[in-house]
């Protein structure tokens, strides 16, 4: 399934549960969607960096098994954005569901 538009929302959501590095984020999205949301993982990083430039997430380095890993965490602005996007998403899916179930009476 094409994730282009919803990848930032999914990243923000995953990070709202705690700091993660890129591989953990990709794995969380794939696992929690039971494989439905599949994507090429290289494309995750431009989106992560874009969110970081916008101040929605922040990165920090951490040593792990002798390797330096770049972790990401949600910022305050990112939390506010996530809340806004979750509301928008709920409105959007509710509207689509209404139509698919026959539509509201006009």
């Amino acid at each position: 399934m094409n994730l282009k538009g919803s990848l930032p929302l999914l990243i923000l959501y995953v990070l709202s549960r705690g700091s993660s590095h890129g591989y953990q984020i990709a794995k969380a999205i794939k696992q929690q969607s039971e494989g439905v949301l599949d994507f090429k993982e290289g494309t995750l990083y431009p989106t992560l960096h874009n969110l970081e430039q916008q101040g929605m997430i922040a990165s920090f380095e951490q040593e792990e098994n002798g390797r330096t890993r770049r972790y990401y965490r949600l910022t305050q602005d990112g939390s506010a954005m996530l809340e806004h996007q979750l509301n928008e998403w709920a409105r959007y899916t509710s509207a689509v569901n209404t139509i698919l179930k026959g539509g509201a009476a006009t």
Binding site: K40, T43, P46, T47, H49, N50, Q53
Partner: peptide, 20 residues
């Protein structure tokens, strides 16, 4: 294979980092 197409990644990275 999991990483995907290197050129697509490069294009998206350039779009992000050269945008400023």
């Amino acid at each position: 294979a999991q990483l995907g197409d290197a050129r697509a990644t490069a294009q998206a990275l350039r779009e992000t980092h050269l945008a400023q």
